[in-house]
Simulated assay, not measured.
Amino acid sequence: MLSTEKQYVQWSENETSYQALWLSQSNHMPPARIALVDDKTTADDAYRLACEGTSLLWRGDFHNARQLLQALGRRIDRTNERSELRKIKKAANKSVTPKEIPNLFHQQRQLQAQRSRILSRLLLELDTGYISKLRRAPDMSVACTAAFGELDESCVLSFRDLQGALGAAQWREKGVPIKPLNVSVFPHYGVFAPTRHEYVQLLLDAPLPDVCGVAYDIGTGTGLLAIILAQRGVKQVIATDLNPQALACASDNFTRLELSSIQLQQADLYPTDAPLADLIVCNPPWLPAKPSSPLEYAVYDPNSKMLRGLLQGAKQHLAAHGELWLILSDLAEHLQLRTRDELLGWLADSGLVVKYRLDTKAKHSRSQDDTDPLFAARSTEVTSLWCLQSV
C-alpha cells in the first residue's frame, strides 16, 4: 500500500535541479543518489551502479528499459550462482536434513530481498496523469490511476512498480478462473491474486453448520471465500479487511457476480456491530515471517499475529452452535517456522475444539519441482480446513 504522506525525489540534469513526487509500492525512501542512464548505458555499468546503491533514472527508449531490467536480473542470477545461491542449490541437490531447512529458507529470502532492492533502482519519470515522454512508451494512465490513484503532478517510480501496475491491469481485465466454482475473480493492484486455490474444494466439501444464517469472512482479499459462502446459500455474509484496496477489489467482484447478500466492512479481523456468526471462515497468511512488501502480507504473518488474533477472538464472536473454518497450510511446520504443538496450543487456548479436519496435498508447480531449494518442505505440504467449535 502506498504511503499517504507525500515524499519527493530530487536530481540534477543539464545543470538544472528537478523534483517529482516519489511513488513506492514497498514504501521505500526516496533515493539519495541518482544517475541518468539511457540506451548507451551498458548493462554492466548499470549493474555496478545499482549494486553500489545508486538509483538509475531512465532517459532512453521505453522498451530498452525493460530489456535493461532483464539484463540486470541475469547479472544478479549469475552473481548468486557464484555465491550464496550455489550453496542453496547444492544443499537442495543432496539429502537435506531437517535442521538445514530453516537456514535454506532464510537464505533464499535474503537473496530475494537483495534482488528486489537492486532491480527497484531502475526508475522512470512520468508527467501529470502518468504520461511518459519516452520513445515507444505505451499509454499507462488507466493502469497507473487504478493502482496509485489520480495524479496531478509528475512522479518518479521504479520500473518494477510500473510493471506491477500494468500486470495488475491485465489481471483486472482477464480475471483469475476458479474452476471448482466456474467463476473468475478479478484482483486489483495491491491485492493478492488467488492463483493457488486447492483449498476451494475443501470449502465446498465441508458441511455447513445446521444453522448458518450469518457468516464472517475475515481478511477477505479478493472476496473469494465470501463468494463461496454466498454461492452455498448462506443468507448473510460479512466480509472484512483492513486494506482499502482489498475492500474495493472484493466489492467489484461481488458486483460482477450480483451477490447482494455480502456486506463489506473495514476492520482489523472481526466486524463491529454485527450479529454473532454461525460460521467464521479465514485463510490467514501461512508463514510466520516478516514481509518485504505490502503485497507479501497475504503470505507472511510476523509472529503469527493475525492467526493468533483470529483464534483469541473467535469464541466471543461465534453463536453457541457456531464453527470456525480455518484454512491453513502446514508449510510453516516443514520449514520449522512453527511447530504443530504451537498451533494445537493456540487452538486449545482459544476455547475451541477440533470438530474435524479436511486435508489436501499441494498441487502448485513449486511442490513438484525437485530443483527448488525448499523442495523437501514444499513436496510434503498439506493444506487443511480445520473445523473448530466452542467447547
Rank of each mutant, 00 (worst) to 15 (best):
T240V: 12
A246M: 06
L343K: 04
N283K: 05
K361M: 12
L257P: 02
A362I: 01
I280K: 00
R308L: 11
L269Q: 03
G322R: 00
L247T: 02
D330V: 04
H321R: 08
A250F: 01
N253P: 07
L276F: 12
L328K: 00
T272M: 12
S293A: 14
V354R: 15
G345D: 10
I262Q: 01
H317E: 12
G322D: 01
S293G: 11
L257T: 07
A298G: 13
A248D: 14
L257I: 11
H334E: 10
L311D: 00
E333F: 09
E342T: 12
D273N: 15
E342P: 02
I238D: 01
P275C: 11
L318M: 08
C249H: 02
R338V: 06
N283E: 12
V299H: 14
L328A: 03
S261C: 15
F254N: 00
V353P: 04
E296K: 10
Q312R: 14
D268Q: 10
I280R: 00
M306W: 08
P285L: 06
E296D: 15
A348E: 15
L276D: 11
D273Q: 13
L287I: 13
L318K: 01
P271K: 11
C282F: 03
L264A: 06
Q263S: 15
T272A: 15
Q263V: 08
C282W: 00
K305A: 15
V354Y: 04
P302W: 10
A239M: 07
L307T: 00
P271L: 08
A274Q: 08
L347T: 12
C249A: 07
A314W: 00
N303C: 14
L326E: 01
N303L: 14
W346S: 02
A277W: 00
L269A: 10
C249Q: 03
L307P: 00
P291Y: 07
S260I: 13
L326V: 06
G322Y: 02
A289G: 11
L264E: 04
P285I: 02
N253I: 06
S304R: 10
D349P: 06
D241L: 05
N303M: 14
P288Q: 09
G351M: 05
R256H: 14
L337R: 04
L335H: 04
L344S: 12
C249T: 05
K305P: 08
K361Q: 15
Q245T: 13
D268W: 09
D268T: 10
L311T: 03
A248M: 11
L307F: 05
P302A: 10
L311I: 07
S293I: 05
W325S: 02
E333I: 14
L335T: 05
E342W: 08
D341F: 02
S251P: 00
A348M: 11
P294I: 06
A289R: 04
L335G: 02
P288M: 10
L276Y: 11
V353T: 15
A314K: 01
L347P: 03
D349T: 11
G351P: 04
L279M: 09
T272R: 14
K315H: 13
T255R: 14
A239N: 06
Q265A: 09
L307S: 01
A362D: 04
